[in-house]
Amino acid sequence: MNRQVAVIGAGITGMTAAGALSELGIDVILLEKEEHTGGHVKNWDRLFPSRRPAKEVLDFTGKSMATGVDIRCGSAVESIGHNKGIFTIRPVKGEPVNAMSVVLATGYDLFDARKKEEYGYGIYDNVITSAELETIFSEGKKLTTHQGTTPQRIGIIHCVGSRDEKVGNLYCSKVCCVTGVKQAIEIREMLPGCEVFSFYMDLRMYDRNFEELYFEAQQKWGVSFIRGRLSECAENPDHSLVLKTEDTLTGRPLKMTVDMMILLVGFVPSPETVRIARMLGLSSGPDGFLLPADEHFHDNTTTIPGLFLAGAVKGPACIVNSMADARATAMQVKSYLNGEMLK
């Protein structure tokens, strides 16, 4: 099967890129491993900072693809090669695809919280991840402990798997701080009797309206922030948890019992992405995420002509940035194809 462009990965990035390419009149196929499009965002409930439903953003982006994008779900890309300007992509099912250009939008993976054993994920009942909390919210369930009781106090733990040389990830995952603040608000909204404490090292409210959300969390929702990184956690016989940290602002060790703990898991490079990149001879940075040709001037192109990168394959990114990146990539692909046609 011949196509002008193949977009690999139908997360918000791949969907946006494919939609933009088809609006530019380009013949595009979108290959997705899962049975549905949407990537990680399809598991999120409401988005920071405005708390707009994630579904709204996905539905709208889905509509932009309605005319013209050939969407193939359940088509994980197994192998890829390129020869004389043509890429050959072999999905697990269906015929191979030949394309003049490829957009790699296979995204990221969540940090596996079991690797931080001292936090007790997978060992203690009432330790869950931020991603699991999103699922509880989006399924419209009530937040309860594993034992079925209403939590009276919840601890939110920042930087799980990020900014931690002990797990080999020095980088900051960028979006978990604001996700934690958003989720703190949502817990208070759902369970007004439940206290919420966030344990942080730095609060990275880098983008528009993030700091305001932090302000709202304190002012309107009474969320408390303790500046100290969780050092360890232990379980009580009643399945509540004892957290140990230093309250660095008073300079004293602090112990606190909570009924539940939410781990703000970070981004890690997805092995799938790295595997596909290796097949094409594309390298990763020291952080494991893929490297574009130039950080300022060619941040969507690669050392391989015709191969483009977009979204979280290049490192932690929010949806707004991923979508902007996808649209920029579509323009780059168009000029590449124009150039190719002139040749």
Binding site: M201, R229, S231, E232
Partner: peptide, 21 residues
């Protein structure tokens, strides 16, 4: 980066006013 993990885990720090950080 002043995170306090060292102090939080230090046995001495739990029984005296010693604070390594």
């Amino acid at each position: 980066i002043g995170c306090g993990s060292c102090t939080a885990t230090c046995s001495t720090g739990h029984f005296t006013d010693f604070n390594i950080r």
